[in-house]
């Protein structure tokens, strides 16, 4: 009986502790939401106070005065292109590395993985110069194409596909399937979890990345959301209210998706091992 009471106390303390921690970690997001209904002037002076009469929807309406919708579309194009082509070529090459023997296989794999360790920063300047020479600066192709051959994507796909039993592929071969049909109809359906994780990893990158689109996209109407929002903090009159309204519209779809498909998000982000 006494033991029981002691355990209940522990459970209670645990709940209290984690509720406080959760509130602490949610606070910045909550604050973004609240700030999006304040005027830019009131943001810094009212502190915790939010009077009903101060609530304004002006920030959301004012988003139409900047190319916010265009940035949203650009980010969707970036994410869509990156996912479509990136997941396709990574899974295709990952399949070859997982299930076939060919010359130079190990050395090629090693070179690709070694390249993954190099930071994108090293390639920024050469890529910019190369893209400028062929006229792909400020261009969707120039934004997407250099990103899609993602060594990590290949590695992740390969690791998963190694686990597919060879018997399954051979059975398909006996049934008269070509190697391409095996990829399309046997390997891809089995690999759904890894394809989902890659999709999430790539789309979060496209949605959140700053430095790469900042280098490639040079005019306002070609900015992605990250680049566009980063231009709003600077200057003599930063438009924080507007910025917070935009931020709410950027992160809430992601959070909604996360709540729907938590496991895929977690495996995509943790497997990525990339902080940023």
């Amino acid at each position: 009986m006494k033991q029981n009471k002691y355990n209940r106390l522990k459970i209670g303390l645990m709940i209290t502790f984690f509720v406080i921690i959760s509130l602490l970690y949610l606070m910045p997001i909550l604050w973004m939401f609240i700030s999006s209904f304040k005027t830019s002037g009131a943001l810094f002076t009212t502190g915790f106070r939010l009077a009903i009469k101060d609530i304004t929807f002006k920030n959301y309406l004012d988003l139409s005065s900047i190319p916010f919708g265009r940035w949203y579309i650009n980010s969707l194009i970036f994410a869509g292109g990156y996912i479509t082509f990136g997941v396709f070529i990574c899974s295709l090459a990952g399949f070859a590395f997982a299930k076939y023997d060919f010359r130079f296989k190990n050395i090629l794999f090693l070179i690709i993985i070694a390249a993954q360790m190099l930071p994108i920063h090293m390639q920024l300047v050469p890529l910019f110069v190369m893209l400028a020479k062929i006229g792909f600066i400020n261009n969707y192709i120039g934004l997407i194409l250099p990103m899609i051959a993602n060594p990590f994507g290949l590695f992740f796909a390969r690791q998963y596909m190694v686990g597919i039993p060879d018997d399954l592929l051979n059975a398909a071969r006996i049934d008269g399937a070509s190697e391409w049909q095996i990829y399309l109809h046997v390997v891809l359906p089995i690999s759904k979890p890894v394809l989902a994780a890659l999709t999430i990893l790539f789309s979060l990158f496209a949605w959140n990345e700053l430095i790469w689109p900042l280098v490639v996209m040079r005019t306002e109407e070609m900015f992605t959301l990250s680049v566009g929002l980063s231009t709003m903090v600077g200057g003599y009159e930063p438009q924080y209210g507007l910025l917070m309204a935009g931020s709410v519209l950027v992160i809430f779809p992601i959070i909604a998706l996360f709540l729907l498909m938590q496991e895929h998000f977690i495996s995509g982000l943790t497997a990525g091992g990339i902080k940023g």
């Binding site: 355990n7 522990k10 645990m14 700030s35 980063s230 924080y240 996360f258 998000f265 977690i266």
Partner: peptide, 29 residues
């Protein structure tokens, strides 16, 4: 003794979904 751990886990994970640009902007405030 931790009840509802999946809820806390999800909540603590959410900040990772917020882009660095937005996170930095919010922290400026």
């Amino acid at each position: 003794f931790c009840k509802g751990k999946n809820i806390y886990k999800a909540i603590l994970f959410i900040p990772a979904l917020v882009s660095l640009v937005i996170a930095s902007a919010v922290f400026r405030i």
